[in-house]
Design a protein around this nucleic acid. Sequence first.
RNA 1: GCUGGGUUCGUAUAACGGUUAGUACUCAAGAUUCUCAAUCUUGCAAUAGGAGUUCGAUUCUCCUACCCAGUACCA
Length: 512
Amino acid sequence: MARTRVRFAPSPTGPLHMGGVRTALYNYLFAKQRGGDFIIRIEDTDSHRFVPGAEEYIIEALRWCGIIPDEGVDMSTGKVVETPSEKHPHAPYRQSQRRAIYREYAERLVRDGWAYYAFDTPEELDARRKEAEASKQTFIYNHITRTELRNSLTLPPQETARLLEETTGWTVRFKMPQDRVVAMDDLIRGHIEVNTDTLDDKVLWKRADELPTYHLANIVDDHLMEITEVIRGEEWLPSLPLHYLLYEAFGWTGSMPRFAHLSLLLKPDGKGKLSKRDGDRLGFPVFPLKWVNADGEVSRGYREDGYFPEAFVNMLAFLGWNPGDDRELFSLPELVEAFSLERVIRSGARFNAEKAKWYNKEYLRMKPASELAGMLEPVLAGEGISLPRDYVEKAVETVRDRATFVQDLYTAAPYLYQAPSEYIQKDVDKFWKEENVEMAGDVAAFIGEGNVSSQAIEDYIRSREWPMGKVMNTIRLALAGSASGLGIAEILSVIGPAEAARRFTAAREALG
RNA sequence: GCUGGGUUCGUAUAACGGUUAGUACUCAAGAUUCUCAAUCUUGCAAUAGGAGUUCGAUUCUCCUACCCAGUACCA
């Protein structure tokens, strides 16, 4: 059997949406599970929509996720490969650099009667569409309308030749067969049949910019690159019959890849697919990495928001797939092992930001304290704090259960890293009373003698028959600046008795 | 409109045609605790509607409703 080869073929028209990352991920998982190749190909056949930086963004985003291509991009340089080599035999992998290839195939289709030259201008076509719309109809360029439009089927051969020679505005259109049922099989959706009469004569090649459209480039490249499975978004399902017919037209049916169409990611509330707007509106990232567009508009990214790539990938994998049992935590290698297209859900998946956070929290709990400490250090540095690594590790171990993101390791208990500079007024009013302070001071002195265990402190307070809550909260207020937070013993285990004594003294000075 | 796809708790999902329709997130209550979290326990909550096939339908078929996509010289 042929080696599995799949491709992720993004269009560099902007930052890669998380739905796109999921498509790339499923392709990657499928390929790796079968010991095959995951290829990246840049589909930049729309010169008007090209966005500078988008290609680099896509590659970096996938790299962050751990989705490393085998072919198409040289990961040591992060660049799309432009010249063929042993590792990248099908270069260039950017369609705009393959334009010479496509024209030949477009012409072959015309020669074989599967396509024709069309000379209608966009304006003419627009007018026809408006006209049809006015009478509540839809204009489609098909076997009926093509007989009355300006193309090589209706024009005399000399006229066609002249127009091809003298004008540049023409296109090559697919000559959609009449009344044929195209029977297709989708790895996820099963058997689908469509009558060609409902389809139109798609443009395959644009003379104006010497480039193919998606449909032609896609089929030609998938064939040339020996792609075995095409795993892509659901938005392509309607053009699948055209693609089947194109394979037939080229005589490549025998080596046609198998297709799998993934459902779309839907917005968390309301209707429609997940969009950038939803992220802004509901406060979660829609993109893997931060992106700043040409107008300076910033879109937040999972990476910058503090998500671990493992958590992001795990969450994404489960949006439309599950292993069939109750397990939810999977590393990338484990996903490779467990993944199957058969278990991919057909219906659209609504994105749930809460679940995304839950995943992050789970990963944060699993990570070694040393690693977390390393990630936390830049956060602390931003606060002007510099502490020994083992101190930070100890603090991390103490707060990790109340954190979702790395930055929470600081914000959930800043007092582990520095003495409180202010005290919550509400708690001061409630606890900082003379008798409490007196009892707390006594206990603070006891702690200062090195008694830092929860057991010792509680026994001491009980032996005096003091109210546990009042005393403890008063001490916490002095140590942490707030009556709520980590347990006293936990705080002490990090800051130590000497620092605790200092903080109590400082609180006395500040609060009286 | 037309064509195609889809529809199980609020969300993500599980369930050889036979289950008290399970799990996770969220939410609520309780336990625990020096507070807040965390944790543990419990709870709330679903097969879109209607026909049909069948001894039996979440599961198969059809109809309706709703949702999504496509309907570009965009991908």
